[in-house]
Design a binder for these strands. Structure first.
Lengths: 213, 213
DNA sequence: CAATAGCCTGTTCAATCGATTAGCCTGCGC
DNA sequence: GCGCAGGCTAATCGATTGAACAGGCTATTG
């Protein structure tokens, strides 16, 4: 097969191109998560990035490749955030450490709802973009999380629930309030972007999982 | 303003039109939930329904109106399912009744992941379709659920968590495994459409919320 | 000081979108 | 048994989509 997918552009990039490229990726992240892959137009992305539409095809081979760049940058941010929280925790016991990790996950999901929106989006079509997401990004996180939960379950720190179910309970209970933020604002008097609300939600999730916030 | 939205077509429908209309709505439900509003094309919906594309504009004024019909039929099914479970429960205590309702919600979400997929989809754009969803369908369910949780909390049957947070924990933890079914199949050895898996997930959610399945 | 390569824009193309129109076929009411 | 309205299709519309192309500006390079 002549699959060429995502070869880097064979061009020696100059540093002056980086900020422009970053603005495009940021705009693409927002619009892909808001409008879905099909719903987001390259013209709209270009407009939000403050550039012309053909420039997207200059920096990226296709809309598909721009989508991959957006996804990569999102997961890079997530992994960096979680890693920073994990290191610097030498000597803290395993349960407390896990709780902090969960809280960090909830906070990140609140500040970056785009990630879960894109995952939800793509996990329906079940196409090549789903392959990219799972193989490249989701599986490593899933396996680390499951291993953590199973260690916690052996200590009795979390309820005895099959780890796959626990994983989807966490990835559902944590981000949904923020993924559905516009709905939440209409239904309740809460603003999901408010720090106090985020804190309260992290409390709630930890209370359910660990028995204490 | 000349807003005309969703007037019924001024035409005396014959019974022979109903099955065709239903097939179109069913196909629209599947494709809107899989591909999002923008991603689903009227031609594809027509093809899956086994009719020609202009027929959609015969039965519905616009793509928007077809979307509303699909959403209406989904929520009608949800409400019917939950109501059937609630009646026929005379004399059962409140906690057991709530548990059964939650289990029914999880089961419905597993068999009809389209509903949550569409809600997730629309809750990002924050446009007129979001208004339609919340005002017409989600708010009544939200208020009933919150009232139920607050009654349960007064009895100590569920953890003391602000009801809005509890609502989003439930609507996240319950359906996410099934909304992300294609992802789940790749990550785990579980098939989210398997009855045993659905049962196990309902057990897990009830265990976390109520302390026992 | 040329000249080359990276960065970016204006213009345009074929494909595809939702919607409209004109018209065919069928079966019910009179 | 005739007319007419409902159900449906074929053909086509203007608008918009992602992408390609040709060319201009600028900074680095030799």
């Amino acid at each position: 097969m002549a699959s060429s997918s995502t070869k880097p552009l064979d061009r020696v990039a100059r540093p002056s191109a980086k900020p422009t490229r970053d603005r495009i990726v940021r705009a693409a992240t927002d619009l892909f998560s808001e409008r879905s892959f099909d719903g987001a137009t390259t013209r709209e992305i270009a407009a939000q990035a403050g550039v012309t539409q053909p420039l997207l095809n200059y920096h990226f081979r296709s809309k598909e490749e721009l989508w991959q760049a957006a996804v990569d940058s999102l997961f890079e941010r997530l992994n960096k955030t979680l890693d920073e929280r994990t290191t610097g925790l030498r000597g803290v016991d395993e349960v407390t450490s896990a709780k902090l990790r969960v809280r960090e996950f909830v906070t990140f999901s609140a500040r970056n709802p785009q990630l879960h929106r894109i995952i939800m989006q793509e996990s329906k079509a079940d196409g090549p973009r789903m392959d990219y997401l799972v193989d490249r990004h989701v599986r490593p996180i899933y396996e680390r999380t499951v291993a953590l939960f199973e260690a916690l379950a052996r200590r009795g720190a979390v309820p005895d629930i099959p780890s796959a179910h626990l994983y989807y309970i966490l990835t559902g209970a944590g981000p949904t309030m923020f993924v559905l933020a516009p709905e939440c604002r209409r239904l309740t008097s809460l603003d999901p972007s408010d720090d106090a609300v985020i804190e309260a939600h992290a409390d709630a999730v930890c209370l359910l999982l660990f028995g204490s916030p």
